[in-house]
Design a protein around this nucleic acid. Structure first.
Length: 100
DNA sequence: TTCCTGACGCTCG
DNA sequence: GCGAGCGCCAGGA
């Protein structure tokens, strides 16, 4: 799916620019790697809005196409995941070789 | 407009 | 090392 289509889809889901920025930043995370909520917030241009970033990821209408499962907490734990729970999140990451 | 809530982070005891 | 408390920003009622 093209980036423009993705953005269009996100807008149709009533996501704000900030939320879209967060999700686009999430998509930039390479396969097999993870980023923290803080990193994603920074990439979205709002370094201190890490909590709001979590709110944005929660609304992700394109999971797991937008790899919100690659976003973890800064202490290394998984955090939460709306599309299947942390168990599923861990399984996906293991499949991508992102974590042990 | 105001208040509450949240997939978090950091500091301090 | 660990838990509690507070701060952070944005969105929704």
């Amino acid at each position: 799916m093209k980036r423009a289509e993705i953005i269009s889809t996100l807008r149709k889901n009533n996501l704000t620019d900030f939320q879209i920025d967060v999700l686009l930043a999430t998509m930039k995370i390479p396969k097999g790697e993870v980023a923290t909520y803080k990193e994603v917030a920074r990439m979205a241009g709002h370094p201190n809005a890490y909590r709001a970033a979590g709110t944005a990821l929660r609304k992700n209408p394109l999971a797991p196409m937008i790899p919100c499962h690659r976003v973890i907490k800064s202490d290394g734990s998984l955090g939460n995941y709306s599309s299947g729970g942390t168990k599923r999140k861990k399984a996906i990451l293991q499949k991508e070789n992102a974590i042990d």
